[in-house]
């Protein structure tokens, strides 16, 4: 085994890169976003005003895109692990 690989395994074992914490933080953030998305969906069904609905739909798009990025980042962290 090369020295760099040994160091990498050691860092991973000791969680020197805080990967665990990062993953936890991402998971929490994703949960928050999911909650936000759900609340937006509920509100969207309640709204009648077109302007308000358009605004909320945009917000929904933003949350979805952010979640997508978060999931991708989490997957990458898992792969590294």
């Amino acid at each position: 085994m090369k020295t760099s690989s040994i160091l990498e395994t050691l860092a991973s074992a000791l969680d020197l890169n805080n990967t665990k914490k990062k993953k936890e933080a991402l998971k929490t953030a994703l949960k928050k976003l999911k909650k936000k998305e759900n609340s937006y969906r509920v509100r969207l069904d309640e709204l009648d005003n077109d302007d308000d609905r358009a605004e909320l739909k945009n917000k929904l798009k933003v949350v979805k895109a952010q979640r997508k990025k978060g999931v991708k980042a989490l997957r990458e962290l898992n792969e590294k692990d």
Partner: peptide
């Protein structure tokens, strides 16, 4: 919180 901040940065558009 540094990790939470990093998570936000990762998800920002």
């Amino acid at each position: 919180d540094i990790e939470a901040q990093e998570a936000d940065e990762l998800m920002a558009l």
